[in-house]
Amino acid sequence: MTPQDITKLIVRVSLKDRAAFDSLYRETSAKLFGVCLRILNDRGEAEEALQEVFVKIWTKSDRFAVSDLSPISWLVAIARNHAIDVIRARRPATADIDAAVDISDPKPGPEALAVAGGESERVHRCLDELENDRAAAVRGAYIEGDSYFELAERFAVPLNTMRTWLRRSLIKLKECLER
């Protein structure tokens, strides 16, 4: 299915077309489930989250029209943001350090993730301009939904140092992305 086909489905869903909703679910639910599962790291929670995500897609599909995102990116953003909302509600910033460290173990390295995206993408090229550990932190935050708190734990630095460090990376990234 092409991005144009997905766009048509989302537009039809915004007109409350249930057949389009079924097709959209068939085409995209596996990807969005992968997003929820990766961030939540718990099958039951990911299944619950996926339900919420499709309820949101049904009720908020009219907002796609005002977004600059590609259709699949728009759907992924809904799933990612919902899953991250769930873990932020689940893990208060001051608790559960051990769990955060446990979960961080089986992650693929930054190299594997870079390959997954392809070299043509600007964001990968710009991340490559950062030092390795900095790029890894940005990718880890995006893909796993790590909080500042968890990143600071992993890199063994104070929270404010982590924030400063990431914001320096972000300004470099932005300069490169808008070059």
């Binding site: 489930f33 992968g34 997003v35 339900q51 995102l69 992924v76 993408e121 600007r122 964001v123 990718r139």
Partner: peptide, 23 residues
């Protein structure tokens, strides 16, 4: 939009049929 290409790292995972029914 800037970060969207990073989402390629998310693998698709089969969803149990019961989920669509629940939705």
């Amino acid at each position: 939009a800037y970060f969207a290409p990073l989402a390629a790292a998310y693998a698709s995972v089969d969803v149990p049929a019961s989920i669509k029914q629940a939705i």
